[in-house]
Design a protein around this nucleic acid. Structure first.
Length: 222
DNA sequence: ATTTGATCATTT
DNA sequence: AAATGATCAAAT
């Protein structure tokens, strides 16, 4: 079953809202999709299921999932109380950074407008019994954009200058840099602060749960 | 071989 | 328990 991309934001939202309250089992049944027994060997399964259901068309391009709408789709695992369980991957960090400014950055292009689909996936609930929450169409407020830009600039500067020893997941209030690779033996060559070529594990930008928690809370309070 | 989708598993 | 560091599969 192939679902055409939504042609407007409204159409996307209407589709998304129909998912609220359904279980992953309900959705998987529609697509007769292969269902893994666990996410250990299928970590992207939920995200791909929701993408397919909503008709995402950005697939493997370095663009938002809904290219024509400029909207990035993210599933977000949350506890029964609505708190995010995990950080959220945004994009790979090219080193050295090719994006000259925050406004041109891949992080910003993906975060300018996002559709969050919460998945209640606490405890040891069976995968197919996990329930989809009310989707949230979100754009960061000025306050959050300012902080994101600050984080991005700090992290990008460290990578640009080659200060990889100072670069760690501890940096950044909302945005952080973490490994993003098949495993810890995957390397890329970069130039360090002394001009030496060194090997490091590829990195990616992630956003912390302190930000996604605000997104959820704000949505339910306004 | 890379980029997408992320969560798993160990450390703090 | 929460955060960091490591890892897995599909699609191209």
């Amino acid at each position: 079953m192939n679902i055409l991309p939504p042609t407007s934001e409204t159409e996307l939202l209407n589709r998304a809202y129909t998912l609220a309250g359904k279980t992953l089992g309900d959705i998987a049944k529609l697509h007769q999709k292969y269902v893994p027994t666990s996410l250990i060997h299928a970590k992207g399964w939920i995200g791909q299921l929701i993408e397919k259901t909503l008709g995402a068309n950005g697939s493997n391009l370095d663009q938002p999932d809904f290219i024509n709408l400029g909207i990035e789709l993210k599933t977000l695992p949350v506890t029964a109380q609505g708190f995010p369980c995990e950080s959220t991957y945004i994009c790979a960090a090219s080193i050295p950074c090719e994006d000259k400014t925050w406004e041109q950055s891949r992080v910003w292009r993906k975060m300018e407008k996002m559709l969050w689909v919460p998945i209640e996936s606490n405890s040891e609930k069976p995968l197919l019994a996990q329930r989809i929450g009310t989707p949230i169409l979100w754009s960061p407020s000025i306050r959050i954009v300012t902080q994101l830009r600050e984080d991005w600039e700090e992290l990008t500067e460290l990578m640009t200058l080659g200060n990889f020893e100072d670069l760690s997941a501890h940096k950044g209030k909302y945005l952080q840099i973490r490994p993003k690779a098949a495993n810890a033996k995957t390397f890329i060559q970069v130039i360090d602060h002394q001009g030496q070529s060194i090997s490091i594990v590829p990195k990616g930008f992630y956003i912390r749960t302190i930000l996604t928690r605000q997104i959820i809370e704000h949505h339910y309070c306004t």
